[in-house]
């Protein structure tokens, strides 16, 4: 069967199934199980209203449980076991973790990921704040915003190709077709294969993600800047503050909360970064990161124990943000 046809059937079945489920379960609840008629009408309405939320929630709770909650537990279990040839698992305790900790590739991945965690959220937020503040003050700001925001729509893989062209390297003396090397050569430098220079190549990969995430930071920070009460800025101007003082001493402190949200959101993206490294260097030349290390272990080395252990490391790094988000959400709901 042609996949497009299959897709169409799935849409019809999926959408029809969803609507059918919700309609039929509500119908059953109201007409058959607890009809709001007869001697028990009042009690039946109450009972129906107790059950109905769970009818609405059931598919979502099922999918969330199966696709996100269960895997956390299962990955934890897999990371503590080893696969026995021929099927089955045996308890391995922390063996996978110690094995992983001894793997130089893992240390490299952890080190690089920490580097990413420091550099990318910081620079994306700074560039985003800069872009937000500057574009808010000019007439063609909307167009400028659109352009800076645009990389958000481009896939990590597409961005990898775009930036590989920027970093392209030809031997010295040949015509350079990568912008970066062309600039270096025109300034009298030697062309360099940027992605193969250990340590520094990490920064060339990070540039790709910063390029993508700056737009996101800009959009959110720009909204926050516009939400600042004008009186505070006016008062500062009357008091003779210069534009830099207004920005750093009046505006930035007032949007600190939003800056933190942007920072943490980008941090989560960074922790999961996979495609850029996979497509540009695949972890060669000391550019390994955790998610790509995990993919290597799971699907190339077929080592589920160590692979799951490295996935748990990513989960562990995400956990503080998770707790902080939940704490804030609950505080806000009260």
């Amino acid at each position: 069967m042609h996949p497009a046809f299959l897709g169409l059937i799935t849409i019809i079945l999926g959408v029809g199934g969803c609507i059918g489920y919700f309609w039929a379960s509500n119908f059953f609840l109201d007409k058959v199980l607890f009809p709001p008629r007869g001697p028990d009408a009042g009690r039946n309405i109450n009972r129906a209203n107790m059950i109905r939320p769970w009818l609405f929630l059931a598919p979502a709770v099922f999918a969330l449980g199966l696709y996100l909650a269960y895997p956390v537990v299962e990955t934890l279990r897999l990371s503590l076991t080893n696969r026995v040839p021929g099927g089955g698992y045996e308890w391995a305790g922390l063996e996978n973790y110690t094995q992983m900790a001894g793997d130089p590739k893992f240390r490299e991945a952890l080190f690089n990921n920490i580097l990413w965690l420091i550099v990318v959220p910081a620079l994306s937020t700074v560039f985003g704040l800069l872009a937000a503040q500057l574009t808010d003050r000019i007439k063609w700001g909307a167009v400028a915003k659109s352009i800076i925001f645009m990389p958000m729509a481009i896939s990590f893989v597409g961005a990898a190709v775009i930036w590989k062209l920027v970093y392209d390297y030809r031997a010295a003396g040949e015509e350079q077709i990568g912008v970066l090397n062309a600039i270096v050569v025109s300034l009298g430098g030697e062309p360099t294969a940027w992605l193969t220079v250990p340590f520094w190549n990490n920064f060339f990969l990070m540039a790709v993600l910063i390029w993508i995430q700056t737009g996101f930071a800009m959009v959110i920070l720009s909204a926050a800047l516009r939400g600042i009460p004008e009186e505070t800025v006016e008062a500062a101007i009357v008091d003779g503050a210069n534009p830099f003082q207004i920005f750093f001493k009046i505006k930035v402190p007032q949007i600190m909360g939003t800056i933190v949200v942007v920072w943490t959101t980008i941090t989560i993206v960074v922790l999961k970064i996979f495609d850029i490294v996979f497509a540009m260097t695949n972890g060669q030349w000391e550019t390994q990161v955790l998610a790509n290390y995990m993919y290597d272990k799971l699907f190339r080395a077929n080592d589920w124990g160590v692979g799951s252990a490295s996935a748990m490391v990513i989960m562990l790094l995400v956990t503080p943000i998770l707790v902080w988000n939940v704490y804030n959400a609950r505080k806000e709901m009260r």
Partner: peptide, 11 residues
């Protein structure tokens, strides 16, 4: 914020 990486093998 749960990384989908965790879901790959179990699923």
């Amino acid at each position: 914020v749960v990384p989908l990486q965790l879901a790959l093998i179990p699923l």
